[in-house]
């Protein structure tokens, strides 16, 4: 229960701000913003709920460093052919599981909508973030972000960061 976690308002505000900033960044189209939310030796996983719950390690995307996130940004911008689309994240209030001065464990529900050119908006990917956040001299950063998605079928492909 989150009620048992001792967190002050200032910290909660900062964590909430981090989630909101992340959503804005990944919806902005400026992909260079995305790796900056992570520590150098971060883990980023986009993983189907099925694999997560059955203990299968395979992820749809599995990055183990900020360098890999930068490589993904390069791929999005320079090498991956895809239909252009907008995405819009709607992220729920973070639920803090554990907090100390420099480290938080938290999760939040998310829904991502996709809008292709000349098309209606559709639900694209739905799940929850399971996160470890660390306080660094540059502010709060994700040292681990697992995006565990319920969506049973990816509508063709996922190009941009969730």
């Amino acid at each position: 229960m989150s009620s048992s976690v001792n967190i002050n308002f200032e910290d909660y505000l900062q964590v909430s701000q981090l989630y909101a900033d992340y959503a804005r960044a990944v919806d902005s189209g400026d992909w260079d913003l995305w790796p900056e939310f992570f520590t150098e030796d971060c883990i980023y996983k986009l993983i189907p709920r099925e694999n997560h719950e059955r203990g299968f390690p395979l992820a749809t995307l599995f990055f183990e460093s900020k360098g890999m996130l930068k490589d993904r940004v390069y791929g999005i911008r320079e090498t991956l052919f895809h239909d252009p689309y907008y995405q819009r994240h709607v992220v729920g209030a973070p639920l803090i599981h554990k907090a100390d001065n420099n480290r938080f464990e938290s999760e939040a529900n998310y829904a991502v909508f996709r809008t292709k050119l000349s098309q209606e908006s559709t639900v694209f990917n739905v799940g929850r973030y399971i996160d470890v956040i660390e306080r660094t001299p540059e502010g709060l950063k994700f040292s681990s972000r697992h995006c565990v998605y319920d969506s049973e079928m990816i509508p063709n492909s996922i190009i941009y960061p969730i």
Partner: peptide, 26 residues
Amino acid sequence: TQRRLRQANLFGPAGFVSADDGEVIE
């Protein structure tokens, strides 16, 4: 095992090389 999981980033619906296959088929 870790190597196979890491190289899986190239393939699948978000893969560096396979995501575009689905797109061109569409």
